[in-house]
């Protein structure tokens, strides 16, 4: 087991290397000059050159890369071109809303989609099943910002139940925090619920045909026990896998959702950094997302062992 974790952690290194090279090159090979953005509209080309030199952007590509990597290895993520702060500070400021959004979304999505998927599988072909599957197609296809604006219109503007935008820190006012989390996490959940309920339904359906389900029924167990104790636990591995992969959707969705609801999180930071060609910030945020993604999937893989005794690393 320890063996497995160590190997998987070592495997993060090549993943991050590829991501680092890719992000670095993408930023430098696409048009758009951070120096020009910083200098503003009225700058002369000399001023821009000056700024370029100060930022080290005139160095050959590989030198820039080497400098960046070596400073990262020393724990220095650089200074933002745009925000005039170190990237580390910047991220520390912005991490809470995103973490809160992701956690609320995950809890909400899983607690809705898994029971719904199980029930849909149990009542395969029923009205309930068809409605759920219909909604899941809808949930996949409607873009997040459309859902977001619709929710704002209905619940914030027309009904006035919830605030339109903004963020309250969890430590400052818990109710305010919750009020402002409801709509964003609902928005972000929609796609996630569609995905997980579909997979839950499919894998429970498959398990329901297994011989041991017949055995469980032959023991005189109630339908609820058969479904929750015997079917769901055996169907857990594919569901967990999709939840893990879905974290990527969550990260992508956070960028849009935070913009719609004006949450000062990492998603918005990413958008702002990209628009202002803030290289150090973009690079660090993307590297960080990669680490989070790999680690979460490692945790998911480890969690398999809790559900299936046959899986041993």
């Amino acid at each position: 087991m320890l063996d497995f974790i160590v190997r998987r952690l070592i495997a993060i290194v090549p993943v991050l290397t590829v991501v680092a090279v890719f992000v670095f090159l993408m930023l430098r090979l696409t048009p758009g000059d951070p120096a020009a953005v910083i200098a503003g509209d009225n700058a002369t080309s000399d001023q821009i050159d000056d700024i370029r030199a100060k930022l080290g952007l005139n160095e050959p590509l590989w030198t820039q890369f080497a400098i960046w990597i070596s400073s990262i290895l020393q724990g220095d993520f650089g200074e933002s071109y745009f925000f005039k702060k170190t990237v580390a500070e910047l991220i520390a400021q912005r991490v809470e809303p995103t973490l809160a959004l992701a956690t609320c979304t995950l809890i909400f999505a899983v607690s809705v989609s898994v029971p719904v998927g199980v029930l849909a599988a149990y009542r395969q072909g029923s009205m309930f099943d068809r409605v759920v599957m219909g909604f899941s197609v809808l949930g996949f296809s409607v873009p997040g910002f459309v859902i977001g604006y619709c929710l704002i219109y209905v619940f914030a503007i027309e009904l006035g139940w919830l605030p339109v935008q903004g963020y309250t820190r969890i430590g400052v006012n818990f109710w305010g925090f919750l009020e402002r989390m409801v709509l964003p996490s609902l928005t972000l959940s929609v796609g996630f619920i569609a995905l997980i309920s579909r997979i839950t339904r499919a894998s429970v359906l498959e398990v329901l045909n297994e011989d041991y389900i017949r055995t469980a029924r032959a023991k005189g167990l109630s339908n609820r026990v058969v479904l929750m104790r015997h079917a769901l636990r055996n169907a857990a591995v594919p569901i967990l896998t999709v939840i893990g992969l879905g974290i990527a959707i969550l990260i992508g969705g956070a960028v849009i959702t935070e913009s719609v609801f004006g949450l000062p999180g990492l998603g918005r930071l990413t958008v702002e950094a990209v628009l202002s060609r803030d290289f150090p910030t973009i690079q660090t945020v993307i590297l960080m997302f990669s680490v989070v993604y790999v680690v979460i999937n490692l945790l998911i893989d480890i969690s398999y062992t809790l559900f299936d005794p046959r899986i041993r690393y």
Binding site: Y212, R214, G220, L221, R229, H230
Partner: peptide, 18 residues
């Protein structure tokens, strides 16, 4: 015919507890 994710004891125990 046996549930792969439950121990054999648990599976017999279910009969008795039910």
């Amino acid at each position: 015919a046996l549930n792969p994710v439950m121990s054999c004891g648990e599976q017999i125990d279910e009969v008795l507890s039910t």
